[in-house]
């Protein structure tokens, strides 16, 4: 399995800001929330697959960060720590919502489908990209939470094996194995989607 496509990584939060937040500076913490909310929401959305749940998970992430940032020992690894909390928050959000039966249709899905069905979309490959994105969403829905998590970290966040190991706190060898299995399952699910 090759590495993920190169992706522009979001910038890191300034160390001084993190230090101030550790000391209880609410303005500094607000800076962190504003700088990292999009990234946390994006990762949450990929894991939980639902806008409402992603919203809850993202909010829980920052609440948890605020509670625990004083205990953060390695400021330089803030991003991995934040992502670890985001993954756990997404997991807990799903656990809490397990019994919910109503399937929500994300508003972006409606827009996306409208685009695919005739609304002008710039670029020849755009319709296929939209189709790929839709198929990916449906395929991921059939994967386990852990598989969605590791795939999102690798293919959405562009993280390598060592970085994922750091976020999930598992050995690199285990990351490799899980990623391989998840990728295989995803390809199987994507193939099934193509047949539908």
């Amino acid at each position: 399995m090759g590495g993920p496509a190169v992706r522009e990584r979001s910038h890191h939060v300034d160390r001084a800001v993190i230090e101030r937040a550790r000391g209880g500076d609410t303005d500094a913490f607000e800076t962190i929330v504003r700088e990292r909310m999009d990234a946390v929401y994006r990762l949450s959305l990929a894991i939980v697959g639902d806008e409402a749940d992603a919203r809850d998970a993202a909010q829980e992430t920052f609440v948890s960060v605020w509670r625990r940032i004083a205990s953060l020992r390695e400021v330089d690894r803030f991003d991995a720590w934040l992502q670890r909390i985001a993954v756990n928050a997404a997991r807990m959000t799903l656990r809490g919502r397990r019994r919910r039966q109503v399937r929500e249709i994300a508003s972006d899905d409606v827009i996306r489908r409208a685009s695919a069905e005739g609304v002008a979309v710039p670029g020849a490959g755009a319709a296929r990209s939209v189709d790929d994105a839709d198929r990916l969403g449906r395929a991921l829905a059939g994967l386990s939470l852990d598989q969605r998590t590791i795939l999102a970290l690798h293919h959405l966040e562009g993280q390598g094996l060592a970085e994922i190991a750091d976020v999930l706190r598992i050995p690199v060898g285990t990351v490799k194995s899980r990623l391989f299995t998840a990728r295989r399952e995803l390809e199987r699910a994507l193939a099934a989607e193509a047949e539908r």
Binding site: M1, E30, Y41, Q59, D132, H155, L156, E187
Partner: peptide, 27 residues
């Protein structure tokens, strides 16, 4: 589905900004 295509699909599907009121609600 090579890495490039998967990354594009992931980005197309999930790389979107958080709802505008989420930051305020969180704070």
């Amino acid at each position: 589905w090579d890495d490039e295509r998967l990354a594009a699909a992931f980005a197309g599907r999930y790389d979107r900004p958080a709802p505008h009121d989420l930051t305020i609600a969180t704070l």
